[in-house]
Design a protein around this nucleic acid. Sequence first.
DNA 1: ATATAATCTTTCCAGTGTCAAGATTGAAAG
DNA 2: CTTTCAATCTTGACACTGGAAAGATTATAT
Lengths: 195, 195
Amino acid sequence: MEKPYHHGNLKNELLEAGIRLINQEGEESFSLRKVAALCGVSHAAPYSHFQNKDDLLREMQSYVTTQFMETLEETVRTTARLGDAEQLVQIGKSYVLFFLHHPQYFPFLFSQPCMTIDLSLNGTGKEDFPPYRLFSDIARRALTKMGYPESGMQDAILSMWALVHGLSSIVTMKHVRYDQDWELKIEDLIRNTRG
Amino acid sequence: MEKPYHHGNLKNELLEAGIRLINQEGEESFSLRKVAALCGVSHAAPYSHFQNKDDLLREMQSYVTTQFMETLEETVRTTARLGDAEQLVQIGKSYVLFFLHHPQYFPFLFSQPCMTIDLSLNGTGKEDFPPYRLFSDIARRALTKMGYPESGMQDAILSMWALVHGLSSIVTMKHVRYDQDWELKIEDLIRNTRG
DNA sequence: ATATAATCTTTCCAGTGTCAAGATTGAAAG
DNA sequence: CTTTCAATCTTGACACTGGAAAGATTATAT
């Protein structure tokens, strides 16, 4: 069983091995050569599939963002019957839990300028970071049904997102001590906060 | 005018040159050797004052945290006459503005596990990240004066801090487009959100 | 079967963090 | 004032990193 010269599925394996590395050791000790070694391939092989290290990291971010979106969309589906306001709470919770379960993903996704979010008034939102866009859509629908005025809509959404995103940031800090159940706490905090 | 063999004030200059580097080029392209070169000193000279690169970075974080605290404490002083609730809003605004004005500081301070925050019930808070502790103290006083029950106090503080911290995170993302005045918006958002 | 393009390896280079050995100097002790 | 010593700084080395260049191998199209 000789190892073939051509790997066959190297690009995907590089992406997944890279993400595994991020999860285990964090962004700091990440290196192209380690990822190549994990795939049993020479240190320059990745350059056939990625322009450079940053390109690999960007595609990894995109890969993780897709996972993130799938998690959120799953939550959208399973909470469809709960009503808009409660669904919004659950999306927020799902958002924070994703990072609670994968703490390394938060700095990985947000330290670098990986995403675009257009908060300008004439922005279409088409190019926005998909998780933000999903949260924003659900929030807008919930607020609209609650009779929230369109004038303060974007601000309200922004402040709710800031809460959820800030909680994610806090929950993923290594040196934050908390002796209770984050999952319960997160839900409480989101539910009891109104923009 | 020969350069003396002994620099005289190298430790402080390394810290300040390092922080200048962070502000200009960000954390990514930061290197010990560049900092040494900026101080006109050999690449191994920093090892007389810091154990290693991480040690230098930690002291830089501590230095920046002190600046941050001075900014917040200045705000505490200048808003003392405004009443507790309004003072809390201004502290929150000051928190976010600090990072709006120094965007590189946010990932620099919070990507790595630089700080301790004890949210457990029996925590004294003595070892907490000072800016969080200051915010927490002001918030507790304001909420108490407003008759907020002690039972939900920590949660309320946490959710307000999450908002402020999350806004800081959002405001410092390079690819967030916003065509209006962040300063006004930040104040609005904090003022109109209630835990 | 041959040519071409894609994929992978090898080799090299500059830059990095870190360590060890030595050079220079300020400050304390005689 | 001289000697000693510890602090500070330099030089040189090492392993590791990202990246470029050139060549080897193999799949695919013609």
